[in-house]
Design a protein around this nucleic acid. Structure first.
Lengths: 167, 167
DNA sequence: GCACGGTTGTAGCGATTGCTACAAGCCCTT
DNA sequence: AAGGGCTTGTAGCAATCGCTACAACCGTGC
């Protein structure tokens, strides 16, 4: 079912297709999860964990040599093509969160917090304000990813290159 | 109909509710626009123009005193609460674009290009690489807006403050 | 042997989806 | 007055939505 959501998105996540993907029936999904909302909730946390694990493998370990290196590495890792399905889902989550849906907003916020922690840990030791630098890197990377999503990777590339050169 | 989409989002933009909002019938919408896809397309361009006009009024005129001022002013203007409905719609457009929908991607790209032009025009004359600086500002502001959407405005604020102080 | 609770399949509910067939109105021209 | 094209209302199509009623299965404990 997670694979189905990654491929077809949240809007295609209706009970019968999900059940078919899971090799069961919509009847069973309701029986096990109670209702669709609970199902989607569990799917979301499962996918958040899967995304987190995948990022764990893709993100560099240790410390960056400089702020610029940190931004470069984080941007390269999170913009890797293997994460495209996750990002497609991510923007749907953001859209729901932006409409005030608390479940999605909390889920998205948790992911952002975790990602921020990662960037912070990867910041070079020489950095005085590690948290502040990480917040700036995260904001830039997320902006770049949005620009990727709408086909403006050129802007994202230029912005990142400039920031990397500066920091 | 535009007001209805701004309030209820694209997922609530089915023919009958839209027709009711317009004071007509679904039958008439199909008659005038041919099919739903064309309707949404026209609605999208209409809303893009409305958003553009609203930004035109909200964005400062003239030139910023510095890169930092430019970022500050653009961020303050685009994050104003009056644009919240547009942003909620924006993330749905981004989500569709990210899934490969060409109509939404092109529409979103056009808006980004226009916004980039604005930032460029507002860049101080002393700036040597006005385009590059504008790209970086745009990326930061869009990242901040995404963080706003998922309830992480604290990260966005800190990142912007840091970038403003630096530039 | 037999009842019992946990699990599953079948069928169907009412609502909503985009869209269409049909016919009745409308105004303009002849 | 009669016809013709543009517009519109009514009704309905097949498909899908989340969900449920009902009955049949299953292994376990008595």
């Amino acid at each position: 079912m997670a694979a189905h959501v990654l491929e077809h998105g949240l809007s295609g996540a209706s009970l019968r297709p999900l059940a078919k993907a899971a090799g069961t029936s919509d009847r069973m999904l309701i029986y096990h999860f109670g209702n669709k909302e609970a199902l989607i909730g569990e799917l979301l946390t499962y996918l958040a964990n899967a995304y987190s694990d995948a990022l764990d493998e893709a993100l560099p370990t240790g410390r960056a040599d400089s702020r610029g290196d940190c931004l470069d590495a984080i941007a390269a890792a999170t913009r890797a093509p293997q994460f495209a399905p996750y990002l497609a889902l991510w923007w749907q989550i953001v859209a729901e969160a932006s409409r005030g849906n608390a479940v999605y907003r909390d889920s998205a916020r948790a992911i952002m917090r975790k990602l921020l922690g990662w960037v912070e840990d990867f910041m070079p030791l020489g950095e005085t304000d590690r948290t502040g630098a990480a917040q700036q890197v995260l904001t830039l990377v997320e902006g770049a990813q949005m620009l990727d999503a709408v086909g403006c990777s050129d802007i994202a590339d230029a912005a990142l290159a400039r920031a990397i050169a500066a920091g």
